[in-house]
């Protein structure tokens, strides 16, 4: 019986190794050398769902993906924004090299539609990357999205509440995003095929360097 078990274990180990060897999908560069260095395959793996959990709006959570979006859209792949919280500002996207002809914005009125539209676009092989904003997402739904991304060989970026970082999720890559004086910090909570727990600092925009302290024009603090 023990021989049998040893054999089973050996088979399992073999399967695991085989999975690791072939499991790494081709990746597309994130555009940030620091981040590429820690991700398996040197970038965002194709056919995966990446969860992004920014601590606040405006810390560079979208700028992080702009090099990827620019690269994909110039390579004739489509990029979709599903249920974005604000208007994706065309002049800014255009200036940063995202081809607007390849960009699609999809507005939804409820979570069910958001997840549905996310899945449809991920599954379609014309899309290279799909960004979706969804506050409540169940494990089962993330798994569905993961399968859709695999069949469409696209990357799904799911923006979630920072509180979601506390609960586990089946997404292949989970990143918590914070900001400090120097710029954006990416904390890798989970990464299939690589070490987790690392943090990578990147500075997404040039404002960080021209930062001036103090001014006569102080905007008012809230009266609340």
């Amino acid at each position: 019986m023990s021989a049998n078990r040893a054999q089973t274990l050996e088979q399992l180990a073999h399967l695991c190794r085989a999975g690791r060897a072939t499991g790494v999908l081709p990746a597309t560069s994130t555009g940030w050398t620091e981040l590429d260095a820690v991700l398996p395959g040197g970038g965002w793996p194709l056919g995966t769902v990446v969860e992004l959990m920014p601590t606040a709006t405006g810390i560079g959570e979208l700028s992080l993906l702009i090099p990827t979006l620019a690269q994909l859209s110039c390579a004739e792949r489509y990029v979709a924004f599903v249920s974005p919280p604000h208007v994706p500002f065309a002049p800014a996207l255009d200036r940063k090299g995202v081809r607007l002809e390849r960009l699609l914005v999809i507005e939804t009125s409820n979570t069910v539609d958001t997840l549905w539209a996310f899945e449809q676009t991920l599954r379609c092989n014309a899309f290279g990357a799909v960004l979706a904003w969804c506050t409540t997402t169940k494990d089962r739904e993330v798994r569905r999205l993961q399968l859709a991304a695999e069949s469409g060989r696209s990357i799904g970026f799911l923006y979630r509440d920072p509180a979601a970082a506390l609960t586990p999720s089946p997404a292949a890559i989970r990143l918590r995003l914070h900001a400090n004086d120097r710029g954006l910090t990416v904390e890798i909570l989970k990464c299939r095929g690589a070490r987790s727990g690392m943090t990578v600092a990147i500075s997404p925009d040039k404002h960080a360097s021209v930062r001036a302290s103090g001014s006569s024009l102080q905007p008012p603090a809230s009266s609340l």
Binding site: G58, P85, H86, P88, R211, A212, A221
Partner: peptide, 26 residues
């Protein structure tokens, strides 16, 4: 050609309310 612009634009501008004085960057 546009000057540097933010990626998110609010659908409607809204009165600025902050808990503490912000820093001026540009």
């Amino acid at each position: 050609a546009f000057p540097e612009r933010p990626l998110w634009l609010l659908q409607q501008p809204k009165p600025l309310q902050l808990a503490s004085p912000p820093m001026l960057v540009a």
